[in-house]
Write a protein that binds this DNA or RNA. Structure first.
Lengths: 192, 192, 192, 192
DNA sequence: TATGAATGAGATTTCATTCAT
DNA sequence: CATGAATGAAATCTCATTCAT
């Protein structure tokens, strides 16, 4: 079994559950079933795992979108599917997005951090451009993909972090963000 | 002199400058000019200061909005002023904003998060409702104020977090978020 | 209300319940309903309360003996009543006897510590001498009173400290110590 | 070299010399020649060393008895030798004995106290049973071994705890406890 | 590569004591 | 006499990191 991946997986799980500060390297190695010293063969410190985590998380969201979004559906449905993908991942991995920020804030500017999120940005960018091509929405600004992701992630976090118990609350928030997004993107009313 | 406030102020200053992990309680008490033990009369740990900081930050943003937004201007201008307020505070307290987010998310004092941000939510809610009254925008969803804040904060963080030197980038992002917001709110085109 | 006594009473209760080390002066003053600083008007330190406690405890045991022992009963019954008195107090104030030792061991030899226990020794000494006079037992050694007290206290502590749950165990131990004592004192078989 | 044993040995030495409160964990690790953190690999706190110390002390007393008691001597002599063993160890480890007692009573690790003293109880139990077999004493109660130990330990502590300079006092107490015990055990008068 | 006991610097935390009110 | 917030020295404890195996 790949120990590097085991570390990343363990770190994601523990950071999600206990937060960055309360997770000790001792916890990570225990969870990953490796020896204390082995950690340092793959990473130089706790924070140095963060970029790898961010990368994995970005891919998880992208793949979830890829899986859930059906390009044959009307555009508003696709938008709903897209938000659903983010909500699903956020629910499973709680606060990882905030932790990524924490990682950035705690580090002395990691190079090309943004590029780690590129696969996700590119996917959403393509998604929106195709919608433009298909005349579902008017041409978009270059910042739009990032804003779409940021918005949906923020709402998803608020849905699961603070209101966790009631699933209806999450559904309301998701509906609201879908509407908000469709308006922001000036989506043509679907013919349905 | 209020020692509790001195601690919060010192913590904001030091967390901004050195980050959460590199700031020691010893640093905070030194900065606040109090004894080591006095810290524990007011807070139980370093992280337990975060909610108080979040409260202060929410008020800072609200007050900045209150100051910058001119209700006599056309609505799109007001939206620009509102985003400007968030960008101003985010720029000044770069890391604190991410830290509030992540720091709080990393602890278990999260429960009252929503109430901490209430003053800000209420301000934006009133702001939008007045815009509805004045027919600048159609009636809004209850989740809209939170989405507006979340969106603008996310974009502002992305603008300033990554050590980007170019101020033009921030300006672009701000312009993009203003446009995005106006569309999402279905603001009537200003007459200008 | 007498604050000095309030402190002693609070200390007995807390030392019994939490032990010497885990009891803080802050706990004592809280329990005694006085201010932190007030403690130092009556005692110079936590340990300096110990002699006062020992004094109170010795008197408690003596008074309990005085109350329970009926001089008109046959001697073996009186011995049983005497042990009963010790068991009663030990049960109520758990480990105080051991704590008194701890106090001694933690201090740099308190003067005339033994004299604090004098009232109890004297009572038992008188009790035994009367039994000698009444020919219940042959003449006793000067150390006997202390040995009687030490033995009964030790057994009582073992009864309540480690075997606490089962009341039958305590009863067995008490019966055993009564028999043991009667033999040690060479008590004449009672006529019953 | 076994670090756990080094810690226990160092703790015994230092608690004897300086008492429980004045002995710091820093002192123990220095004496044991290990690093500060290593202490916590073996014990969770200063007090949690006490049960281990108690175990060692019980074994010391048992071994001393085993060495001093000569089964070929008349029974009263053996009893004297047995008490002598306790007095010897108590004199050598004055404060430790009281500390074991009080220290253990002050914590919550008490549960296994009886099992810790088991080796000693078993030795005395065997000793007394052999005396029964050899008709030196009539059959004994199950509690008797514990009472014998408790009594002799209490008297020995009283003899040495209060800094009494006069060795004659200790000798008197020992003689008294021997007589007391022989009577309690209903030992047949030796033929001498 | 992999291990995990050991390290020890440096962090957090405690709490007896003081002192201005 | 009484108070209790403030103190800060000194303690406990943590945990990232190392290194001999």
């Amino acid at each position: 079994m790949n120990k590097r991946e085991a570390i990343i997986e363990a770190a994601i799980e523990l950071f999600s559950a206990k937060g960055l500060n309360k997770t000790k390297i001792a916890d990570i190695v225990k969870q990953a079933n490796i020896a204390q010293g082995t950690f340092y063969l793959y990473f130089s410190s706790k924070l140095s795992v963060m970029p790898a985590i961010a990368e994995v998380m970005a891919l998880k969201i992208r793949d979830e979108m890829d899986e859930q979004v059906d390009r044959h559906e009307p555009f508003p449905v696709q938008i709903e599917q897209l938000t659903q993908a983010v909500f699903t991942i956020t629910k499973e991995y709680q606060t990882i997005q905030a932790l990524v920020y924490a990682g950035i804030a705690s580090t002395d500017h990691i190079r090309n951090w943004e590029s780690i999120y590129d696969p996700l940005y590119i996917w959403v960018d393509n998604f929106l451009k195709q919608a433009v091509t298909e005349k579902f929405i008017p041409p978009i600004n270059g910042e739009t993909p990032k804003m779409v992701i940021a918005l949906v992630e923020s709402v998803a976090e608020q849905a699961y972090l603070y209101d966790e118990v009631d699933p209806q609350v999450a559904r309301n928030k998701q509906a609201a963000v879908v509407t908000f997004l469709l308006q922001a993107l000036k989506a043509s009313p679907s013919i349905s």
